[in-house]
Design a protein around this nucleic acid. Structure first.
Lengths: 167, 167
DNA sequence: ATAAACTTTCAATAATTATTGAAAGTTTAA
DNA sequence: TTAAACTTTCAATAATTATTGAAAGTTTAT
């Protein structure tokens, strides 16, 4: 496999994985492109390489910056903006985990808490709703705590966690 | 909040969470409905409760069965089929984790392995591609091992894991 | 065998989500 | 200032994904 083929394969795989995880394709592909780039890229270069429009590139770069995965970099002597992504995989994974916790898990925990706190009117169906959503609430909250715990180990968190689990 | 409102809120939240995670809305809603039901439900009842068509119900029930989350149950004296979902949250989480590992993570690990194994032609961009995809490969594989490790503790795996991590 | 009761399939359609591109907005250099 | 260089916004459109519903398929009881 040649460089170009490998590159395309990586970008497209990362893109479809992204959309499977609620991150849109272009966003994932831009990140992938920056991830394997040896230097910061301009909007122009990204558009050209991925064959996507200026508008699309602009919007998705913004989202990536909102996630804290991509940052603007100044390139000496250049007027236009250049972009880079976090290059350390562990730090990348940390950011993604924290963001997903904040955006997706926490709101669900809140709803589960509300739903499981309704007044028990004594009927079987109400009891079941309360019981099951309580269990789900507890699970989701535990998972969230776990993620945040894992992720706050900073240095080498994945390896450290793995070791603990294997004991 | 009354029973019906709480039920609707739970089902719709679970539904949108589902679509955020690459599971379609109807599929997640059917599972949610079964999860809080006090008895097995027929296709008829599911259709009616969620206001979705027969075809949609049939297809999504099949998917839920493929995932191993929903099972057909025979109800004495009834000809039609009835459905139930796994009611234990920890077991449910285990099944989902194993399935996602199989369906999503493993194929990506494979691609990353292929891409990171291309011949190093000495250019900077090839070196960078290899380096970064290798790092991603290692990360993804470690995470996959971690998930499978977590999940194979069977009994009370989440609590057990949390304890280990807190030490 | 037949027909009623039920489930599945799948082409057509609807709903949702992503993408474009050009106009509006902003920044910088001279 | 002004105008060129650049970025953002957003209504229109395209692409994708989900849903319907009716015909075809299957099972069961008689």
């Amino acid at each position: 496999m040649e460089y170009q083929e490998a590159k395309d394969k990586f970008i497209s795989t990362w893109g479809s994985l992204g959309s499977l995880w609620g991150i849109n394709k272009a966003m994932a592909q831009i990140q992938a492109l920056l991830f394997i780039s040896t230097k910061p890229l301009s909007m122009e270069e990204i558009m050209e390489d991925l064959k996507i429009s200026r508008g699309n590139t602009s919007m998705n770069l913004r989202q990536l910056m909102d996630w804290g995965i991509v940052t603007k970099t100044l390139v000496a002597g250049e007027r236009k903006e250049f972009f880079t992504t976090e290059k350390d995989v562990q730090e990348l994974a940390r950011i993604v985990a924290v963001e997903r916790s904040r955006r997706e898990i926490k709101p669900v925990v809140k709803v589960l808490d509300e739903v499981s706190s309704i007044k028990d009117d004594g009927t079987a169906k109400t009891k079941e709703l309360i019981k099951q959503t309580k269990a789900l609430h507890e699970l989701t909250e535990t998972m969230d705590v776990m993620i945040n715990k894992l992720v706050n180990q900073k240095q080498n968190w994945i390896t450290k966690s793995l070791l603990k689990l294997f004991k």
